[in-house]
Computed example of a mutant assay.
Amino acid sequence: MTALAYIGAALAEIAGCFAFWAWLKMGKSIWWLVPGMMSLALFGWLLTLVDTDQAGRAYAAYGGVYITAAIVWLWIIEGVRPDRWDVCGAIVSLAGAAIILLGPRSA
């Protein structure tokens, strides 16, 4: 469930932010902001589904998933193939997210 919440949150956040990018940088209609804001609200809700009691830990671990999703967005949506540094950064960020989320905690 946590993985799905993170993946969904990443897609919702990137889509919402891209709507603002498209409006401001690509000359798209201001109406792009309506689904963009709905997508950002969905992003916030999805992060509450992560199985942890601390918001900061959920957000910190999410960062690695977001970085990886942004690289995938770059490739699939924007048509720019990630280079080795993009891939390496995504791997390192996912490793960091796993350490934060799955590391043993003292009671």
Rank of each mutant, 00 (worst) to 15 (best):
M1N: 11
T2E: 10
A5N: 09
A5F: 14
I7K: 05
I7H: 06
I7M: 11
G8H: 08
G8N: 08
G8V: 07
A9G: 04
A12Y: 03
A12M: 10
I14G: 03
I14R: 02
I14Q: 05
A15T: 15
G16N: 11
C17F: 08
C17V: 13
A19N: 05
F20T: 10
F20H: 09
W21G: 00
W21C: 00
A22S: 14
A22M: 13
W23R: 04
L24W: 10
K25N: 12
K25L: 14
K25W: 08
G27D: 11
G27K: 11
S29N: 14
S29H: 12
S29C: 09
I30Q: 14
W31H: 14
W31Y: 15
W32F: 15
W32R: 08
V34Y: 13
G36H: 14
M38G: 15
M38E: 10
M38K: 07
A41L: 15
L42F: 09
L42V: 15
W45K: 06
L46V: 03
L46W: 03
L47E: 05
L47K: 07
T48L: 07
T48V: 05
L49W: 06
V50C: 06
V50F: 00
V50Q: 02
D51G: 06
T52S: 06
D53H: 03
D53P: 04
D53G: 11
D53S: 05
Q54S: 07
Q54V: 08
A55C: 00
A55S: 03
G56R: 00
G56Y: 06
R57G: 02
Y59P: 02
Y59W: 08
A60T: 08
A61P: 03
A61V: 03
Y62R: 08
Y62H: 09
Y62I: 07
G63D: 06
Y66M: 08
T68C: 12
A69R: 01
A69L: 04
A70G: 11
I71Y: 06
I71W: 05
V72S: 03
W73D: 01
W73G: 01
W73Q: 01
L74W: 00
W75M: 05
W75T: 04
I76T: 09
I76A: 07
E78C: 06
E78A: 08
G79M: 07
P82N: 06
D83K: 02
D83F: 01
R84Y: 01
W85H: 09
D86H: 15
C88N: 00
I91C: 10
V92M: 09
V92W: 00
V92H: 02
S93A: 15
S93D: 03
L94I: 13
A95W: 06
A97N: 02
A98M: 14
A98S: 13
I100E: 05
I100F: 09
I100M: 10
L101G: 03
L102F: 13
G103F: 07
G103Y: 07
G103C: 09
R105Q: 15
S106T: 12
A107I: 15
A107R: 14
